[in-house]
Each structure stands twice: as C-alpha cells, then as structure tokens.
Deep mutational scan, measured.
Amino acid sequence: MSYSVTLTGPGPWGFRLQGGKDFNMPLTISRITPGSKAAQSQLSQGDLVVAIDGVNTDTMTHLEAQNKIKSASYNLSLTLQKS
C-alpha cells in the first residue's frame, strides 16, 4: 500500500537514500535524522520510494534520485510504500 508525503522546504529534508537501478535495489529510506522534516512526517526507515515529485523511480539511478531531490526547492513530494 503506497502513501504520499509532501515535505515543505527548503531542504535539507532529513533523510538518506540507498539503492537505485545502478545497485539493482529499489530506492529505500536508509536513515532519518531526528527532529528533521522527514522525522516529523510519516517517513519510516526502510520505506520504498515509489516516486519523487510524481516521477516513477523504477529506472532511476541513485545519483538521478539524489539530483531530483536536490532540485526540489520548496516542496518535495514523495510516494512511498511501507516495507
């Protein structure tokens, strides 16, 4: 079951990613910084990142996902799936 979260910026957003197409692993939330915008939302460590700002992550490399997140200036919309 997927869910959506919109973090209001600017960054830093307070989470780290792992995985990506180049690692043959789905993009997942690997760490959440305590007290951060991510920590105050529904994000959980281990959640799968399905889309970033409406763009499906199935074919994204780790770097492409990082760049997509960094390019979000004020709002960052994520679609996630609980692990």
Rank of each mutant, 00 (worst) to 15 (best):
L78K: 01
K21P: 04
N24S: 12
M1L: 11
S83T: 12
M1G: 07
L27C: 07
N56V: 12
M25T: 11
T79Q: 14
S36I: 02
Q81W: 07
L80R: 01
S83H: 12
D22Y: 04
M60V: 03
A72F: 06
Q81P: 02
Q18F: 08
K82Q: 15
T79P: 00
V50T: 10
K21C: 13
P10H: 09
T59S: 11
Q18V: 11
Q81R: 15
D53E: 12
F15I: 09
D53C: 06
W13F: 13
T6V: 09
V49Q: 00
D58V: 09
Y74N: 14
M25L: 14
V50K: 13
Q45P: 12
D53I: 01
I69W: 02
L17Y: 03
G35Y: 06
N56W: 07
S73I: 09
I29M: 05
T28H: 10
V5N: 02
G19Q: 03
T6L: 10
I29K: 01
S4T: 13
S30W: 08
T33R: 08
I69L: 10
P12I: 04
T28S: 13
H62G: 10
G9E: 03
Q18N: 15
D58K: 10
W13R: 04
G35S: 08
A38M: 02
G54R: 05
G35I: 04
G14E: 03
L48C: 14
S73F: 09
T6D: 06
K82V: 15
P12H: 05
S44Q: 10
S71V: 08
P12K: 07
P26D: 04
S41R: 06
V50S: 09
G19M: 01
S36E: 04
S36V: 02
F15Q: 00
N75F: 10
L43W: 01
I29W: 00
G54C: 05
D53K: 03
Q45C: 10
K82L: 15
M25V: 12
S83V: 12
Q81C: 08
A65E: 01
I52C: 01
M60E: 01
L17V: 12
A38S: 06
K82E: 13
Q45W: 06
G46Y: 05
M1Y: 15
V50F: 06
T61C: 06
L17C: 08
Y74V: 15
V5E: 03
V50E: 11
G9N: 04
R31S: 13
G54H: 06
L76A: 03
G9W: 04
S41C: 10
Q66Y: 09
G14L: 01
N56C: 14
L27E: 01
K70D: 12
I29E: 00
V5R: 03
L7A: 00
L17Q: 02
D22P: 08
K68Y: 08
Q66D: 14
M60W: 06
L43M: 15
Q42L: 10
A38L: 03
A65N: 02
T33L: 09
I32K: 01
Q45E: 14
L76N: 01
T61P: 04
I29N: 01
G9R: 05
A39L: 04
G46S: 05
E64Q: 08
N56I: 11
K21N: 10
S44V: 10
S41E: 08
L27K: 02
T33Y: 13
S73T: 14
E64W: 04
H62A: 10
M25R: 15
P26T: 03
D58R: 09
N67I: 09
E64R: 04
F15G: 01
K21Y: 08
G46Q: 04
Q42D: 13
T57I: 04
N24K: 12
I29L: 08
S30I: 06
S44N: 08
D58W: 07
V55Q: 12
I52F: 02
Y74P: 15
W13I: 04
K21W: 07
S73V: 14
R31K: 15
L80T: 06
G46A: 04
M25G: 09
I52H: 00
V5A: 05
N75T: 15
K82D: 09
G35R: 08
M60D: 04
D53T: 03
P12C: 06
K82C: 15
G19F: 01
L63I: 09
P10W: 07
R31C: 08
L80W: 02
T6I: 11
K82G: 14
P10R: 11
L43A: 06
N75K: 15
A65F: 03
D22V: 03
S30E: 14
M1T: 10
D58C: 10
D53L: 05
D47F: 02
A72Y: 09
V49P: 00
A72H: 12
A38H: 03
L48Q: 13
L76M: 06
V49R: 01
V50Q: 11
L43I: 10
A39N: 08
S36D: 03
Q42V: 10
V55W: 08
L78F: 04
S2W: 08
Y74W: 13
Q45S: 11
G20S: 02
L17I: 09
N24P: 06
S4L: 07
P34H: 08
P10I: 09
S71K: 14
S30G: 13
N24Q: 08
T33N: 09
Q18L: 11
A51S: 09
G20A: 02
R16A: 14
L63C: 14
Q18T: 12
G9S: 06
S2K: 05
K68E: 06
V5C: 06
I32P: 03
A72P: 09
S2T: 15
V49A: 02
I29G: 00
S44G: 09
F23V: 13
V50C: 10
V55P: 01
G46N: 10
A65C: 09
M1Q: 03
E64S: 06
S44K: 13
T28G: 06
L63H: 15
S77R: 13
W13L: 06
K37A: 13
V49I: 12
M1V: 09
M1W: 04
F23C: 14
S44D: 08
N56P: 13
I29V: 13
T59R: 09
V5Q: 03
I29Y: 01
G35E: 09
T28M: 08
S41N: 11
S36Q: 04
S2A: 09
A72G: 12
D22C: 04
Q81N: 12
Y3E: 04
T6R: 09
N67Q: 13
I29H: 00
S71P: 06
P34K: 12
G46E: 04
A72E: 14
K82I: 15
G11D: 06
D47W: 02
P10V: 07
Y3L: 06
Q81M: 14
L48D: 05
G54K: 06
W13M: 06
G14Y: 00
P34E: 13
T79M: 12
T33G: 05
D53Y: 03
Y74M: 15
Q66I: 14
L80D: 00
S73M: 13
T79S: 13
L80S: 02
G20F: 01
N56Y: 10
L27S: 02
R31P: 04
D22L: 04
G11V: 05
A38N: 02
S71M: 10
G11R: 11
G14F: 00
M25S: 15
K70H: 08
S30M: 09
Q40A: 12
G11S: 10
G9Y: 07
L17P: 01
P10G: 13
T33M: 07
F15V: 08
N24A: 07
Q18H: 08
T61N: 06
G14N: 03
S4D: 07
T28R: 12
Y3F: 11
V5H: 03
G54T: 04
I69P: 00
L80V: 11
L17W: 03
A65D: 00
S2F: 14
F15P: 00
K70W: 08
T8M: 15
K37R: 07
G46H: 06
T33H: 15
Y74I: 12
F15K: 01
M60C: 05
L27G: 01
S71W: 08
K82P: 15
N75Y: 08
K37Q: 10
G20P: 01
I32M: 05
Y74F: 13
L17F: 07
G54Q: 06
T28E: 09
T59Y: 09
G54D: 09
I52L: 06
I69S: 03
P12Y: 04
S4H: 05
M60A: 03
N67L: 08
S83A: 14
Q42P: 08
K70N: 13
T61Y: 05
S41Q: 09
N67H: 08
D22F: 04
T61L: 04
S73P: 11
T57V: 10
M60Y: 07
S30P: 02
G20L: 01
S44C: 14
I52K: 00
S83Q: 10
G19S: 02
L76Q: 03
P12E: 10
V49D: 01
N24F: 12
S4A: 05
S44A: 12
K68V: 13
L78S: 01
N56M: 11
S36A: 05
S44F: 07
